[in-house]
Design a binder for these strands. Structure first.
Lengths: 336, 336
DNA sequence: ATTATTTACGTTAACGATAAAGTAAATAAT
DNA sequence: ATTATTTACTTTATCGTTAACGTAAATAAT
């Protein structure tokens, strides 16, 4: 079957290729009757422009990339939903790359996509990302970058985040209100800005209540394999906490499992709050009090910012931070 | 900053563009010393080939598309994980498109990507997809298509699925073994092949035990808004079931919520099994017996089949069905 | 010693589109 | 009536790469 290109349309209509191109772009340079004829033939022959030829010429690909640690996590899945919704509406395509928390992989991916393939990048870095050069490279290639959730605060780029400090402050406050005397916090990293902010919020709430914190009350589960054991140990100790905050969703499961194993009752023996967007939070045993992050909105916002910055009409690059607040949803894991 | 193209390398090294191209592709036509020089300069100038120029010429994009109903669903998220893993390993890029169960959108998406943009397509159709033309179009454009999970059985294309019939047979069997007398099944569609197969498995198990099924024992929750109400009604009826099978994960939540509302105890009053990959199944109240689908493996397998079919070395197009079995994981929602 | 083959490149054209610049005819301005 | 402008196109060049074909020199074959 013959490949339908702009040239085929041109020769069939006795017009030049350029005229076809302009007609299909509804250029004012082309008369209405001609546009009609072109559109009709294009439809009849089921013509679709060749993406690559167009992108080569225009240096635009109408494609953005999303680089993020994980997709099998409700938070990130919802973010992608938000991104995809905006992208589709504006006619953009979305490439997905997963880092699986591997900084080296993140670097590789950016190297891999920097040239020509994408018009813009949305990224949530790995918990091990400290260097910034691999992201700076994107700027050199004139590819706008926007951070979401896991940002690199030292980079002067737009960021879309939730109110990490404040929401963890409120979570801690809630545990204290529920009568907790000793609250631990459990994180996957001390490097990530979101972790730092959430831990700071926790610390501030504690100090505002004149409660001192020991070092080991911030439990660092940066190694998946040892995470359960660490939690188990901290919960079986004689000086175990009576409240715990998991600053990411994936820590919920080991906490619940450890409690079951240790015969600790939630919320009687231990009150639990997780940063989580998992819809099953409400039917856990017991139902889980969560800090619910505006994941969809974060995705939508980040994508909108990016696509706006790609639109030549509004080229004002905003380097500011957009903060979208999280919501504390109180359920049974922190009392009744 | 000057754009580093193959021509720049050529002029700096006093070679032709073609030689550079061949050298970078490690062609046997180029001498080793020349290759060295080319590679060194390319590295020094941080040269990356322009994707679009290359794709235009070679008619390959090293990009595949994944079209699926939803991403905020652990099953699909894991499938994507599997796909992405294989794609990265083989140097392919992955575009994601979400249909949100909208057939019209699915059609639009395929129209949108059919020309040149992708080398192959992995698709899991919406619950409303019955027409096949939009997928047949892909074949006309010589884009290989592979179905995963939600297949169109009437199309002669490779499919990767789990053992839907059998696993639902076994789930039903398990409920019967646990003493259930009246088992309902709850589905999101009667159109989807996976639904049909699962329901058939259920029906076969029932008839093998000489238990007749009334029509309303197959509950069709094809409308999200009415799903909860439908489930609630069926569970409050005097002739309510004592066992229920949810053939997709998203039905778990309304079932649990309805039981809570109606004060029905799981598993005493109602035994529940869901097709689910949600890791929280183990910490639900009570923990949920699941048919756990090999989601990651399905993704991996589908991607591997697709990428193999794109490799000119093995152009044998396999049109067969690959079946990867699910696993019944017994937990507390079906007894102890 | 002559011809055939291989090696290591180069030249030209093309992938399919669009940008930039050009042009003939029609219309408007003076 | 002459010049300026607008309309509706066309011509040419180019995006960056690679396929197809060409070729001079070196090597091998006869």
């Amino acid at each position: 079957m013959e490949n339908i290109t702009i040239k085929v349309l041109a020769s069939r209509l006795n017009l030049s290729a350029t005229t076809i191109s302009k007609a299909l772009q509804d250029s004012h340079e082309i008369s209405e009757p001609t546009k009609q004829r072109v559109r009709e033939l294009a439809a009849a022959l089921n013509y679709t422009p060749n993406t690559y030829a167009r992108s080569l010429r225009t240096r635009k690909s109408e494609t953005i990339a999303v680089v993020l640690p994980e997709i099998a996590d409700h938070f990130f899945a919802l973010v992608i939903n938000g991104i995809e919704a905006v992208a589709r509406e504006k006619g953009y395509h979305v490439l997905i790359y997963l880092t699986h928390e591997d900084y080296h992989r993140e670097k590789e991916i950016l190297e891999y996509i920097k040239k020509g393939r994408i018009d813009g990048l949305l990224i949530s870095v790995t918990k091990n990302s400290t260097a910034t050069e691999h992201i700076a490279v994107m700027e050199q290639e004139n590819i706008p970058v926007i951070f979401f959730d896991r940002v690199m605060e030292q980079m002067q780029l737009p960021k879309v985040v939730t109110n990490d400090f404040e929401s963890c402050y409120l979570a801690t406050q809630h545990l204290l209100d529920c009568g907790c005397k000793k609250i631990n916090v459990c994180t996957i990293s001390t490097n990530l800005e979101i972790s730092k902010q959430r831990i700071l919020g926790y610390q501030k709430a504690m100090s505002d209540h004149n409660i001192s914190i020991e070092k080991n009350q911030v439990l660092i589960c940066d190694d998946d394999a040892q995470c359960y054991a660490k939690l188990y140990n901290s919960l079986q100790a004689t000086n175990r906490p009576d409240g715990i905050i998991a600053i990411v969703d994936k820590l919920t499961l080991p906490i619940y499992l450890a409690c079951e194993q240790l015969n600790l009752k939630i919320p009687e023996d231990l009150k639990v709050i997780s940063f989580s967007n998992n819809p099953t939070a409400g039917i856990l045993n017991p139902s889980l009090t969560t800090v619910s992050q505006p994941a969809f909105l974060i995705g939508q916002t980040a994508a909108t910012l990016l696509l706006n910055s790609l639109d030549p009409k509004n080229n004002k690059v905003q380097q500011d931070i957009t903060v979208i607040p999280s919501e504390l949803i109180i359920r049974n894991s922190t009392g009744y």
